[in-house]
Nucleic acid binder design. Sequence first.
DNA 1: CATAACTTTGCAACAGAGTTGCAAATATTT
DNA 2: AAATATTTGCAACTCTGTTGCAAAGTTATG
Lengths: 138, 138
Amino acid sequence: MDNLIDDMLKSNNLSITGSRKKILEIFFSSNGALAHGDIEKRTSEKFDRVTVYRTLQTFLEKGIIHTIPTADNAIRYALCKDSCGEGHHHDNHVHFICSGCNITICLEDVLIPSVRLPFGFVAEEQQMVVKGVCKDCK
Amino acid sequence: MDNLIDDMLKSNNLSITGSRKKILEIFFSSNGALAHGDIEKRTSEKFDRVTVYRTLQTFLEKGIIHTIPTADNAIRYALCKDSCGEGHHHDNHVHFICSGCNITICLEDVLIPSVRLPFGFVAEEQQMVVKGVCKDCK
DNA sequence: CATAACTTTGCAACAGAGTTGCAAATATTT
DNA sequence: AAATATTTGCAACTCTGTTGCAAAGTTATG
Ligand SMILES: [Mn+2]
Ligand SMILES: [Mn+2]
Ligand SMILES: [Zn+2]
Ligand SMILES: [Zn+2]
């Protein structure tokens, strides 16, 4: 496990540091997407807030994590499982937010359907977020 | 026009005040969705920041405006054109964000396609945001 | 494996976003 | 017009996010 994380950092040309390892571990051991605040809580007293911001930014650029837009001004982050890389994300799956337990999860197997846009509009990227009740809260 | 706005407030059981009228006017005269900050700028020096927050909150609850989730932590707000009311929104259309001019618009005519969720998940509400190039920026 | 070169981190200081309580002002009801 | 109810502005505060810079840590090199 520790090796997996090291390799992951290496293959992305990132130096191996305590905070990067810890934050990746948090993502691997979490069963949902995380907001910046969640990560801060879980690294609590270990790293500076600023380091968390910078680490998330770096992971985002490298295609290690992707964002999930929200209507509560708290972007969630989750590991990319698709073939994302530096500068190109391909996370075209639906995200689900449970109104019960508030978990945010990647539905890797549910692809975002394409839509027909009005004349003149060109799509580059789409996001779909479904709110509802998750299988555990039913 | 001024009458339309007054009626709109009345029919929602809201008292008619300067800030509510002004903020509604701003929405009617804008051709895209607005973030809290945009509204603040356009009411500049006229109302307190806090009043803008409270007014948006009220409009949201009454079903006068709806939110558009974003990945930049700046929720956009737009007028509801569907049959939304106190406590129930029905804005099931796609939203488009232009990467050129950054406008955020409601594509009222593009309905969000439904998706098949994994067993056990129940959808209550869905959001779809498409990023790309708008017809004016092409 | 020691040193040099490079990268990341923590800290401090700051700017901006959002919240709350309360008294004054404004709107509605009678 | 007065009484009642609602909304607003202000002050004070908390939380979120950003930047510059020196110190600490990581990687590359011989
Ligand atoms: Mn995802
Ligand atoms: Mn809309
Ligand atoms: Zn749940
Ligand atoms: Zn545009």
